[in-house]
Design a protein around this nucleic acid. Structure first.
Lengths: 120, 120
DNA sequence: GCTTGACTTCGAGTGCGCTCGAACTGGAAC
DNA sequence: GTTCCAGTTCGAGCGCACTCGAAGTCAAGC
């Protein structure tokens, strides 16, 4: 798969995929005889995982740390699990925060609705 | 209340409060005889609402639009309600997305745990 | 064999939301 | 009355995560 095909599959741009590689979020991708990147399904799977981490607000810096751990093999399983557990807690906290803010939003929508009705 | 007192109450910096005013997110705040900003409880209330909107990911551009509507009084109640409803939908979608990603996280934590146990 | 188009690298640029440094001012404490 | 501190404005700078332009290369299609 070429860089732009892979980009389309994971919902990023080809620019971003090259940049991720440069930033050490992705291991150097295999090249064909002309030096062009060839993405495997495994590469795509890794990228999909990265997009999940990004979407949940993990900074690129932490994703790099995770990628480094993954490169070191089984002996970092515990560290990777700890990293994910800490991140899961942050995501849970974020969801709770959003749900709290949602109540403010609903309250305001309610107030505006009432005021509109009172004015007419 | 001074700018730094207000900043502390709403959890922003004095820099940010002045910047919010400059950006039109906040109406020009009253000044004392020496030209120093004096924040009222009402000002703080408005700032707290803004922090909720920011926290839920509303861009500053949209917050400015909302502030402009609020300045125009009751005739924009409908527009403000619509703005909040649209934003509420985005927040709901964001929560759903986070919950989906959470499952991936939990799955990975599970897999790492199993692998750790298998290795020892 | 020439054109086309997608790739390559490199460094520079962008948009967002602040964050800060510099130079100045004015009231309060000693 | 001098020191000190917290405020003022202004424009510049920063950190993050991309995004892009330029110049070059290479394989495939005509």
């Amino acid at each position: 798969m070429t860089v732009s095909e892979a980009a389309e599959r994971v919902g990023l741009t080809a620019y971003t995929l090259r940049w991720y590689e440069q930033e050490g979020l992705v291991e150097p991708v295999d090249r064909d005889s002309a030096g062009r990147r060839r993405y495997s399904d495994q590469d795509v799977g890794w990228l999909v995982l990265l997009t999940r981490l990004r979407r949940t607000g993990m900074p690129v810096r932490d994703m790099r740390r995770y990628a480094e751990l993954a490169r070191q093999g089984d002996r970092t399983l515990g560290a990777r699990r700890a990293l994910f557990e800490a991140h899961r807690d942050r995501v849970l906290a974020r969801i709770a925060e959003l749900e709290e803010d949602l109540e403010v939003l609903n309250y305001k929508i309610d107030v505006y609705g009432k005021m509109e009705r009172e004015l007419q």
